[in-house]
Nucleic acid binder design. Sequence first.
DNA 1: TGCCTGATTGCCT
DNA 2: GGCAATCAGGCAA
Length: 206
Amino acid sequence: MKLPRAWRRLGAEFYARDTLAVARALIGKILVHRGGGAACAGRIVETEAYLAEVDAASHAFRGRTARNASMFGPPGRAYVYRSYGVHACFNVVTAARGSGEAVLVRALEPVLGLASMRRRRGASAVRDLCRGPGRLTVALGIELDHDGVSLLRGPLGVWWDSSADGALALDVTPRIGITRASELELRFCLRGSRFVSGGSRVSARA
DNA sequence: TGCCTGATTGCCT
DNA sequence: GGCAATCAGGCAA
């Protein structure tokens, strides 16, 4: 499956900047995985920033370990880890090499390859295919094997639509599902999108 | 070596 | 709205 002509792949300079700037800029970009012959893609509608020193919720907070090693690698790579022993969560490594900062992609609006997504996820409403970090990795076929791979080349990457580039309205909120440093407002989502995660469950908690 | 917890999801009532 | 599934990392002993 071919990608639209207007799509352009993001380069290293996109990731090698302030983590908050990347988390913001990722909203509206397109996460693409071309694996197993089929291309799957979704527009990013929700991200969370994970910082180094000030952020006790970050895996990198206690320093480098075998699990989080790719967070400390060069920016523009993937950091994929297993959550709750069950789910894979996909992050992009940001900022300077060695800083240990990353942005978690929490939700996508499905754009391409919906049939493949449904097959991997089991029959599911379009809205639920990629709504949540564990769901979008299943839908796109992203696995723990992708930990540390480059997003600058190869089957996995982030693109932008040069025919529909413009300022988007964002909401900034505390992050979801964490207990440490939950006061930090490091979650960004596309205002008004039906595809952001954290529905009734999260609002009920507040 | 062993216990506890979590950047979640989906099924159950 | 409640809770089990499931396991590796982190920390205490």
